[in-house]
Design a binder for these strands. Structure first.
Lengths: 128, 128
DNA sequence: CCTTTATATTCCTTGACACGTATATTCCTT
DNA sequence: AAGGAATATACGTGTCAAGGAATATAAAGG
């Protein structure tokens, strides 16, 4: 588990990162705000720390965790190759935004319709 | 496995998406270019298709897959909350330290913990 | 039809990982 | 030094995803 992609695949870890994007937090604060059990928080923080996504300082018995956002650039950079596709369809973005209340992802199961008996095979060109 | 985050956690799927960002491809082309076994390609394409990241059209016995990049906006949007950290790292941090909600500010003795991952020297002079 | 080509699917095994419970560690306070 | 608070780790367990091998489906061509 080394790439940032796998790290942020976990919803709880994304929640922690989002929370830390607001302000640095101690483990206990994260635990209370996100309603996660303490060992769970610690374990996820360990993973986030090991992969460089957060850093921590010690305040007495507390550990204060804060974002180290540079590690997320890996994602940003990877996304770059797709940006040119987005520049167009603007309304698609809005549709997408509406469908995204927050965490629970929209599950969509659109199997493509198979076209049969169309006579000749089409190359591309498409045209929805 | 519903969120785009989990989908792109898989390296082979990222490779497929990157390849499709170049040009649409048949299954066989993906198989050859990425040196993956055919069932593996098909299975990943199925997942990508079900989650709306690619779409396919039929050309005779071939299936031509192409990118459907809107689904990646979920990632892009999530990343948005971290972008300001990238532009001006230091100011953003300070801005948020002031906004620390609740919790009486304890004097914190800053002792750094070791960090792995891409390193970036940070300095912080204690809290208020 | 039968064969070939292209792709999808099924079954199986294996390994990773997330969680819960319990316990260890660390530091403060008295 | 003892007790408590905050956090980390160990261990056992269930789940789920990914890959391999074999097979199924679909279309084309002889």
């Amino acid at each position: 588990m080394d790439s940032a992609f796998e790290i942020i695949a976990e919803p709880n870890r994304r929640a922690i990162l989002s929370l830390l994007a607001t302000a640095e937090q101690s483990v206990g604060e994260i635990e209370r705000r996100l309603r996660m059990k303490q060992p769970t928080v610690s374990k996820h923080l360990r993973i986030l720390h090991d992969s460089g996504l957060v850093e921590s300082t010690i305040d007495a018995q507390r550990r204060i965790y804060r974002l180290q956002p540079d590690a997320l650039r890996e994602i940003e950079i990877w996304l770059d190759q797709f940006r040119r596709f987005w520049s167009s369809h603007v309304e698609a973005l809005e549709r997408h935004l509406e469908r995204m209340p927050s965490e629970p992802a929209a599950r969509r199961r659109v199997r493509k319709t198979k076209r049969r008996g169309l006579g000749r095979a089409r190359k591309q060109g498409d045209g929805k």
